[in-house]
């Protein structure tokens, strides 16, 4: 039950700089490329471009919360604090992209649907997903004991991740204002290319963000252990 002493795992493997540069430069290239090379949509004109960022943002959100699920389960199983820190990092990045998904969707919805927001199953479940993970992040800052913090947030993280397939299937299960998933057949090839390139760009960015955040979280935790040890009577001087 005693917390692991600092330095048990050694310093974290740093995220390589080249990965960061690659992720950002590729992201910028893909935006320019996909906007310039695809024609306006027959129905909604250049509003179609929003799909290039809204849809990948939603996908990497799902991916990030998938990492939360696996890391949380692993933490409950093996009690490895690194898994807890990875889950927290993925939850933070996932929340960012979930918020981005909602905002980009609203920007598209106003001119297309005529409203910024409607309480249909897709929109509501996505908002719930966002709120669960904002709650997850605030829960972490409320719990002092790192071990208990890990257990409680793992429970919330697993619950939140269960919502991911619900968000995904919501447009199939219920009647919604939001359209169902586009299939490659319903998508002209020039749009599919922009979408897939963006998916790669968003995935790279997400990996980079989570890795960097995890690295920082490991150092934060080491400092936490050191402070605890010092308070308990000058461990290590």
């Amino acid at each position: 039950m005693s917390p692991a002493p600092s330095g048990q795992f050694g310093p974290p493997k740093p995220a390589p700089n080249w990965l960061g540069w690659l992720a950002f430069l590729f992201f910028i290239f893909v935006q320019v490329y996909s906007v310039l090379t695809s024609p306006a949509d027959a129905m909604m004109g250049h509003l179609q471009k929003n799909m290039y960022v809204h849809v990948p943002a939603a996908w990497v959100t799902f991916g990030a919360f998938g990492v939360v699920l696996v890391a949380s389960l692993y933490f409950l199983w093996k009690d490895d604090e690194r898994a807890d820190l990875l889950a927290a990092s993925a939850a933070e990045v996932g929340s960012l992209f979930c918020g981005l998904t909602l905002v980009l969707g609203m920007l598209w919805g106003r001119p297309t649907w005529g409203v910024w927001w409607s309480w249909d199953a897709r929109l509501t479940s996505t908002l719930v997903l966002f709120l669960i993970f904002v709650g997850y992040l605030s829960l972490r800052s409320f719990v002092e004991d790192p071990h208990r913090r890990g257990q409680w947030s793992a429970a919330v993280g697993i619950l939140g991740a269960i919502n991911v397939p619900i968000v995904w299937m919501s447009v199939q299960w219920w009647r919604t204002l939001h359209q169902i998933q586009s299939s490659p057949r319903g998508l002209a090839p020039e749009y599919l290319r922009g979408l897939m390139l963006n998916l790669a760009a968003f995935t790279l960015l997400t990996i980079w963000f989570i890795w960097r955040r995890y690295e920082a979280a490991r150092y934060e935790r080491a400092a936490e252990h050191a402070a605890q040890a010092a308070a308990l009577g000058g461990y290590n001087g």
Binding site: D41, A42, W113, G114
Partner: peptide, 24 residues
């Protein structure tokens, strides 16, 4: 009190001779 347009899940470029800005 409110009319909302449902959008399909299909995306296609305008046919030849059609200008999307005109259609819009």
């Amino acid at each position: 009190t409110s009319v909302m347009v449902k959008h399909s899940n299909e995306y296609k470029a305008p046919a030849k001779g059609e200008r999307p800005s005109d259609m819009y």
